[in-house]
Each structure stands twice: as structure tokens, then as C-alpha cells.
Design a protein around this nucleic acid. Structure first.
Lengths: 168, 168
DNA sequence: TTGGAATGTCAACAAGACTGACGTATTCTA
DNA sequence: TAGAATACGTCAGTCTTGTTGACATTCCAA
């Protein structure tokens, strides 16, 4: 019989079998599919993709953010982001205002229409997250976040923590 | 001051603020980037993408699996999978043998070369998962898996559990 | 004041997903 | 046993989203 739960060894390190780690890997794979499924359905109706969702989400989170700022959070090239941004501006979901202090910068905001779509997307995603959290219970939620935070790259954790400031 | 941890209400349901749920959503987003970062680097060297990784992973997990089987696990179209599979077979990483019982089926196996790449990919991914699990501790690992499993779609959870059979 | 750095835009291309249609071999079933 | 269903492969075309390269504008510092 194989061990199905991590145990602590005399040296104080967690003993982890390849099987336990693989289960974590596959859980991550299948869960992420569920995580994106609901927004994907809504986006498809509007002719958008996940890239649009990500842009909308972080503009909502940090109103007035610049393109460069968004780039470092999203981790894509500016040309890639620009294409998405262009369609969102053209469709009237995002507004694009020249910076007052630095005229090279463009400050991004969601319009009324943009906020409406953001609501629909985040409602759907929160519903699933709420169900998962309630099903698993409060201790599980704490563990979930601890593992995910340890899984991030150094610089991504910085982005993550910067977003958390003021809401913790 | 906002609540930063879930609490239980008199009706027995977890009380979850939008902030708590959003943190879960953003943690998922940033962690998944870390989750795929190491394999992505290795794949890029070989001229492959994530699609190749997924195929290699599940062929390794279920040697002799059929194309149809793989399709339902990966959740892509056969045209999409076929493109990936064709290059893997051409490059000598995957073998493709006609079924003995049912000659319509093709059974997929990793070659020696395929197993070598699989090792490199899964070693990298396991290293990160091990670090995350050790950093977070055993209770956190249990919670992590509980939340992820509750986050999966019904049919994905079936695939996930089917893969677990015999290893739990 | 001028040259370099920073910010953002446009154009072209590639990977990888999708749909739809079709062909072939094989198996199942009425 | 004939016809329907299944398993697999392929061609053609589209879409999203990533990439590089070239370029305009703006700011700043030598």
C-alpha cells in the first residue's frame, strides 16, 4: 500500500512521494480548466478570449493603470496586450487617456459597459470559487492559498502581494 | 478592517467576502503561471509547446491509451491533438501501434526518447510542487487538494479520479 | 539642445485552438 | 450479410494570442 498523505520525517522535512506530487500536478491541471470554464463561456458570447478577461480584470483592480504596468502583471509582450486593448477600446469597454504628468503614458479605465462585463465575469468565477471554498472548509482554504503562494515565481508573488495591499 | 479569513455563520455556511474570493482567483492565476514556467522553458528548447507536454504526460500516465481516450482527457479536438501527435511520432518520441483486439484503435506509447523528455519535464514540475508542499506543510497540502477537487467540473473530476485509481 | 531611454502603436508571422467535410478501415447490429 | 456506427487520419479555413521588427512620440539628462 502506498502512502497517500504527506508525513514528516525525523529530519523535519516533509516526505513526499512522486505519486503525491503527481496528484498535485494533475489536480492543478484539471482544476484550472474548471477555473476558466465559466468566464470562457461568457467571453465566447461576446467574441472575446481569456486575454481580454485578464486585461479587464486587472484594469478593474487598478483603475488608471498604465499599459506598462499591466504588461508586467500579465507577463506578455506589449504588442500582444495592445491588440487586446485596441479591441476593448474600440468596443467601448475601456477608456484610454493620455497621462497628465507624463504624456507618453496612457491611463486605462473601464467604462460603464466595461464594468458591466467585468461584473458578469467575476460573478461567475466567484460563484465557483465560493462553492469550492464552502465545500472544502476554512482550514482547506488557508492551505490552498499557502500552497499556491509557495508555487508562484518570486516576481509573480510580488505582483500578487502588491495587489493585496490595502485589502488585507 | 476587512475580514481576511473565512468564518462560519450561524446557518453553518462559510461566510466569504468578495475580497477573499478574489484573492483565491488571483492566487490561482499567478500560481498557474509558476506551475507551467519550468516545463515551458524545457519545451521551448525542443521547439514544443504545452500541448506536447500534456500529450506526453498522459501517454506516460496511461501507456497504450488510445487517441479517443486522450481526447476526452485533454478536452481538445482530434484535429488539434493530431497535429501534436504527428510531430511527436515523427520525432520518435511516441509510438503508434494498431490495436490487437480492435484494429481501428491506435495504442500510444512513449519511446525511450519520449520517456527521457517526460522525465525532464516532470522532474522540473515536481521540484516546484515539492518546494510548495514543503513550504506550506502537510495540512495545507490536504486543503490545497480539497479546494482544487471542488473546483473541477463534474466530468473532469471523473477523469481525475479515474487516473488516481490504483495509486491511492 | 540633442541623443538615448521609455511608452505606446502598427504590421506581419507562428502556434495552437476551433469547425466542417471527407476518406478509410473496422466493428457492431438489425 | 448489408448498412450503421466507431476510430482514426487529413485537408482547408478561421480565430485567439503569443512572438519580432519597425516606428512615432515624449521625456530626460549629458
Amino acid at each position: 500500500m502506498t502512502m497517500s498523505h504527506p508525513t514528516t520525517t525525523p529530519n523535519g522535512l516533509l516526505f513526499l512521494t512522486d505519486d503525491q506530487l503527481r496528484k498535485g500536478i494533475e489536480a492543478m491541471f484539471f482544476a484550472y480548466r474548471g477555473f476558466t470554464a465559466d468566464p470562457d463561456r461568457i467571453l465566447a458570447k461576446h467574441g472575446y478570449g481569456r486575454a481580454h478577461h485578464r486585461a479587464i480584470h486587472f484594469i478593474h483592480r487598478s483603475p488608471g493603470t498604465t499599459v506598462n504596468n499591466l504588461l508586467s502583471i500579465l507577463g506578455v509582450t506589449k504588442q500582444s496586450l495592445n491588440r487586446v486593448l485596441r479591441t476593448l477600446v474600440a468596443d467601448g469597454l475601456v477608456s484610454n487617456t493620455v497621462g497628465a504628468r507624463d504624456k507618453r503614458e496612457r491611463h486605462l479605465h473601464l467604462t460603464e459597459k466595461g464594468e458591466t462585463l467585468e461584473r458578469a465575469l467575476s460573478d461567475a468565477q466567484r460563484d465557483r470559487m465560493r462553492y469550492a471554498f464552502r465545500t472544502a472548509g476554512p482550514e482547506a482554504v488557508a492551505g490552498f492559498r499557502q500552497v499556491l503562494e509557495a508555487m508562484m515565481d518570486e516576481d509573480m508573488r510580488h505582483s500578487y502581494e502588491a495587489l493585496l495591499d490595502g485589502t488585507e
